[in-house]
Simulated assay, not measured.
Amino acid sequence: MDTAVNGTTDPRFAGVRAAFARNFTERGERGAAVVVYRDGHRVVDLHAGTRDVDGGRDGTPWTPGTAQLLRSATKGVAAAVLLLLHQRGTLDLDAPVSAYWPEFKAHGKEDARVRDVLAHRAGVPALDRPLTPAEAADPDLGAAAVAAQAPAWTPGTDHGYHAQTHSWLTGELVRRTTGRSIGGWVADEIAGPLAADLWIGLPDEQAHRAGRVGPVEPPAAPGGLRARPKRAITEAYTDPASLTSRAFGSITPSPDENDPAYRAAELPGSNGIGTADGLARFYASLIGEVDGGTRLFTPETARLARTEASSGPDRVLVVPSRFGLGYMLHGVASPLLGPGSFGHPGRGGALGFADPESGIAFGYVTNGMQKGVTADPRAQALVAAVRSALDEPTSGA
Rank of each mutant, 00 (worst) to 15 (best):
G142S: 05
P356I: 14
P229N: 10
D45R: 01
K75N: 14
G142F: 08
T3Y: 04
G15Y: 09
H208I: 06
L127H: 08
A384T: 13
E357Q: 06
N6E: 15
I287P: 08
V373S: 10
G312N: 13
R42H: 10
V35D: 13
G269V: 09
K109H: 04
A207W: 00
S395Y: 15
H166N: 09
A79W: 11
T90P: 06
F20K: 14
R212Y: 07
T252M: 09
V43C: 09
P11G: 07
L337R: 13
A67D: 09
L225G: 15
D92P: 05
D277V: 06
I251A: 04
R347Q: 05
L127S: 07
G160Q: 01
G338M: 10
L127D: 01
V44R: 07
N258K: 11
R129T: 14
A106H: 13
L325M: 02
F353Y: 10
A191V: 02
G278R: 02
T154P: 06
G156L: 06
L173I: 11
T66L: 10
V290Q: 02
H159A: 14
G28A: 01
D259L: 09
T66N: 09
V114R: 03
S395N: 08
E289K: 12
Y364R: 05
A381M: 06
A95G: 09
H120T: 00
D376H: 00
D94F: 00
Q149G: 07
S72R: 15
L329F: 06
A284K: 08
R27N: 10
